[in-house]
Amino acid sequence: MTTTTVDFASVFEIAQAVFAAMVDGDEGLLVPRDDVGAAIADPMVAWVNVHGPYPGRTALTTSSATAYTLVRALLDVPADTPMAQADIVDAFGEIANVVGGNVKSLLPGKGTLGLPHVGSSLPPTLDALVVVAPLAWRGEPLDIAVWFTQERGEEE
């Protein structure tokens, strides 16, 4: 059985790898943030749920302005080129999907990953918050939070 190790270090490592490969080409642009607990203004949240023996969720929260910048960087779209809102939602959701999929890979069992969702706030979530990673991408706040229950009895 795989050991369950979802902590700040593992989440940060995944996020850094995802951002470096998909967005920046450089691991140094996503870093830990000092002002832990500070609210993010005008938030945009993207999350994916995990169903199965370890039901859970991975969520990315940043400001809408930062999410737009992030998506433009991901798609290599210049700042002055208009983008469809559907593409912004799609792209931001995909970043959460990739981070969430890699977080799920840390867990044992045969759970399934849901489709990504994007909104201005999270729906009610599980009690078992495992880790919040307060990060900064290009100097702007970006939080990654992971929840999962530890009911290993149902593992296949």
Binding site: M22, L74, L75, D87, D90, A91, G93, E94, N97, L115
Partner: peptide
């Protein structure tokens, strides 16, 4: 892929 954006990235 159901994500148009991800198809473009692929």
């Amino acid at each position: 892929d159901d994500s148009r954006v991800m198809r473009q990235i692929v």
